[in-house]
Structures are given as structure tokens and as C-alpha cells.
Amino acid sequence: MVNAAIEQHSQTDAPAKTGAHIDIQHVSHWFKLPNGVLQVLDDISLTVAPGEFVALLGPSGCGKSTLLRLVAGLEPATTGQVTQDDTKITRPDPSRIVVFQDPTLYPWRKVWDNVALGLQARGLLKEQRYRVDDALALVGLTEFADAFPHQLSGGMAQRVALARALVNDPQLLVLDEPLGKLDSLTRLQMQSELVSLWQRNGFSALLVTHDVEEALFLANRVIIFSDRPARIRAEIKVDLPYPRHRGDARLAELRHEALRHLGLDASW
């Protein structure tokens, strides 16, 4: 567990500014389909400051995850460009690590070996084995280093996925609904732990989530998208220090504002 890290940073309002600066400039994107083209993004311009945590909210299928893929360098934008520290993103890079909804662990590899994958692929494992141990300690799984994925709970498996990302010391963590399949209690715990990891490591974070409260609990800013093709409908600055408290009246106000932009405030 990372309770010690949470306590260590309980008075910290923002992470150290060591993360990537991401600049998304007038990005539009289309998919080629058998019967034509489908536009999913429409003139998106957005920046993520070094060490900032930004969350993306919007209707399902509007293009949020597509934008993450462009930022990660998994495919190029149809028009516009995405840069990291003023350099155009054209391909994946260890400085930008994606954490998906599914942990995608190799079932035949023990926890330690799953976390070591990035270093192994880059030829760094022999000299930097200590980083695997450090990453496991950071997510509270040192005692499970020799376990197999099937022996872990869902929350523990997602911690392994986070450790696998953090072992590469990324400048940007790209989070595509990483807590979406966890039970509600584990999800709440993991949200606090994710904040702690972000504060401790100082990376920038770009999160896609469908959970309004999660976005407001984690992020410095929440960007709200329209229906497909996604346009930026609103931007909410979450003007609250960390650690945040879920019963805070200001969070309730911001939740209502977010739901209003999403057209879902009538029942709140």
C-alpha cells in the first residue's frame, strides 16, 4: 500500500514540475471505414502543463480514447499535430506510458517479471533491476513479487500495471479508464493511491474516465467533450488542494457544473 506516500504528500497542493509538456494543436481525426470516413475529433486544441493532471470527460464513443492514442504516438492525427516538449509526437516512446482498463499482464510471468518488461525490452534490466523492486514497493506489492497474475485481485493486478508503467520513469502517464473495471470500494482506494503516485513522481497525467466524481477527485483540470466528433465543450478548473475530501461542498458544486455541460444535471 502507499499510505506512507499519501501521508508524506498530504500537504502538497501540486506535484513537482518534472513531467512532460503536451501541446495538442488543432487536431482533427477521421477513421476510414468500408462505406466512407468517420470523423471522431474536430479541431481539438489542448495543453497539459508539466506535472499537471488533466481528465477528459464526454459521452461514450465521442473520441476521448482516440485522442489518447494520438498523444501516446500509437497513430498520427489526420490533421493538426501533437507535441511533447516542442517535439512532434510521431511514434510511441518510453517517456509516454499507457495504462489501460485491463491490466494486460502476461499470465505465465510472475509479478516481478511483468513489471520488468519495459526495462527488459530496452536492454536495461541487468543494470537496473533495482527499479523493478522500487516500483513494486511504490505500489505496495513487494510481498507479491513471486505471485502469478491469477493469484491477484483486480485492484492488485492494476497496481502491477501501474508499477510496470512507473518502472520506466515516464514523463507522461496516459490513463485510459484504468480503474473502470474495479469494484466500487477498490476503485475509491485506487483513486487515492493514484494521486499519491502522481504527487510523488511528478509526471504529467492525461486521464479518460466516464466517472465525473473520479475526474474531479483526481485532476487539476477537467475537459468536457461533446458528442462525436468530439469538440471541447467546457473546461473546469478544480480549485481544491490535495488531499481532497469526497464530501467537500465545492466538489458537489463542480460535479453539478460538469453534469450540466454533459446535459445530465436535471436529476441532481
Rank of each mutant, 00 (worst) to 15 (best):
G73F: 08
D86M: 05
D134C: 03
L264S: 05
Q84M: 15
L68S: 13
L74P: 10
R244S: 05
A161F: 07
E7I: 09
V48A: 10
L56R: 08
W108Y: 12
L166S: 06
P149G: 13
R246S: 15
G118Q: 01
A77F: 10
S45G: 11
R233C: 03
A234M: 03
A14D: 04
R233M: 05
Q101S: 00
I22S: 12
L240R: 14
G51D: 03
L141H: 00
V167D: 06
L218W: 13
R164Q: 04
I22V: 15
P178G: 14
D23P: 00
S184M: 10
A121L: 15
A5T: 15
R69G: 09
Q81G: 03
T47M: 06
A258T: 10
A157K: 03
D102H: 10
Q81K: 14
Q199N: 04
V115M: 02
S204R: 02
L254V: 13
D211G: 11
I97Q: 15
G51S: 06
K32N: 15
R233Q: 13
A77C: 10
Y242W: 15
T142V: 07
G180I: 08
T87H: 09
G19K: 04
D248V: 05
F53M: 12
A72G: 14
E127Y: 05
A137R: 15
A14C: 06
R231H: 09
T209Y: 11
S153A: 01
L197K: 08
A147I: 00
T79P: 01
D239H: 10
D183R: 00
L41W: 08
A157R: 09
G247A: 02
Q189S: 14
H26D: 14
K32G: 06
L67V: 11
Q101K: 00
S267E: 15
R228P: 04
R164F: 08
S204V: 09
I97N: 04
L124S: 06
A137N: 14
S204W: 07
I224H: 03
Y242N: 14
M1F: 02
R69H: 13
I6W: 05
H150N: 05
S267C: 02
H256P: 02
Y130G: 05
L254Y: 09
G123I: 07
D43I: 11
S65T: 14
F217S: 04
L173M: 15
